[in-house]
Structures are given as C-alpha cells and as structure tokens.
Amino acid sequence: MTLRTGLFLGGLVLALTGTFLFLLTPIAALLLQVPPRDLPTLLRDTAVSSALLVSLKTNLIANILFLTIGTPAAYLIALGRFRGRPLLVTLIELPLVLPPAVAGIALLTAFGAFGLLGSTLASMGVVLPFTQVAVVIAVTFVAAPFYLRAAISAFVALDRTQLDAARDLGASEAVVFRRIALPLAADALRAGWAMAFARGIGEFGATLLFAGSVARLTETLPLAVYAQLDVNLNSAVAVGLLLLVISGGVLLVAKLPPLWSPAAPSSTAGGW
C-alpha cells in the first residue's frame, strides 16, 4: 500500500468516524438521560398508550394509502413518455420543502372550515379538523413525497430490456408491472417506504395545526412528547425513545431480505 492510498483510506475512516459521532452522540445522550429501569413506569402512562395507538392506527392507514396509490403513480411518471417530467417530479417533491407548520396551514387552507374545499366538504357533512382523518391526511401529505421520490427513481433505474422481453413473450402491461417491474424495484421501494414511514411516524407540525392535539383522538406520539416536555422531561424522553425504537425497527426490517417475496424472479433482482 502506497502512502497516498494509506492517506486516502485514513481520510475515509476519519470521515466515517466523524459522521457516526455526530449523528449518534445526541441519540446516545438521550438514552443516558433516563435510567432504563424507569422506562416501563414512564411509558405506562395512559396518555402514552393512547398516543401510541393513535400513531400506529393513523400511520398504518396513511402508509397503505401512499403505497397503493403512490406506487402505480410513480410507475407511470417513471416509464411514461411525456415532456415536463422534471417539472412533475418537482411538484411532487414540493411538500418536502414546506416547513411542517406551513404544511399544516396549507392543509387548513385547503380542507379547513374556511378552506378551498372546506365549504364543499361541510355541505357534505364532512368536518376534518380535530379528527383522525385529519391526522391521516397530515401524515400522508408529509410522508408520501419521500416514498414517491424513491419509487420514481427505482422505476427509472429499471432495465427496460427486461420489461420489453416480457412484453415480447406476450405479457400484458399489468403483468409486466406486477411480475417484472415490482419485484425488480422491490428493494428500492422498501427503502423509500422506510424513509416515508419514519417521516410520517415523527410528523408533528402539520398534525398539530391541522388535526389538533385532542387526547385519545388526534394526539400522536410526537405531539405527546411535546406536551410532556412541559410536565416531565424524563417522560418526554421516554416517549421519544419509544418513537426511536419503532422507527429504528422499521428502518432495520426494511433492509433485511424479505421473508415473503411477491414473485420468484426477485432472487436475481435483489443483487444490487
């Protein structure tokens, strides 16, 4: 190994060490803040369990929504032949750049009582603010763009010749999507979903403004953390750790090889 290679490798290791220290020190500090044996007591609070329930329920629905609708939408954007695709992708990414509180106000001005669609909704007897439906909308609004971005990139990166080969062999477009494109893109889709999930489960600002913080109804885990900050720092940290464990678990699971795979050819697809 020459001196130059050694220096370069040393630089790489230094960069990695710095990255880990910077990202993990705050999380380690959080873990050290509360004695582990106090955690069960702190989490046994009914406010925490109801917030956990609200978070899981609303996020489950939101995730199903953006997976089932977002995946085919991303497929069309990625494979469709039309002009202005960069513009379309940028439009989809816009919610990503909104500060959460602005996202909340945007949702209110769209679906709130005086919003663009508010009076139409009200005439149909639909009142969204302070309901779980509003939480689902807020979570979907902030999380879906993460998934869509990843899904579009995943489908764009597909090897078109494989899709064409399937077509030549007589597969319909629906079969190409289900049996070829989806399995080939599966890894990237899962990674994108994991990021979207993590963003959604931690959603705070848009939920607070649009769905409110109603105990047992719209108070999600992140809102509970914020509310607990005024009461008991330890309890807030405990709820924060719970969130961390849930999101960390999901991120890890998304990286493991799937136990269940939708179609056989994914064994060749998972290579990269």
Binding site: A101, L108, G112, F114, F130, L209, G212, S213, V214, A215
Partner: peptide, 20 residues
C-alpha cells in the same frame, strides 16, 4: 372536543383558520 396547544400563536392560527 378540546385540542391543547403549547404555543399561544398556534392557537390563534387554528381558530382564525376555522379548525376550532
């Protein structure tokens, strides 16, 4: 149905925009 806020300014916008 009561929604609790930590910040007075959040409360003001939520009422002004008709959430509450």
């Amino acid at each position: 149905t009561v929604s609790n806020y930590q910040k007075a300014s959040d409360l003001t916008s939520v009422i002004a925009l008709g959430s509450a």
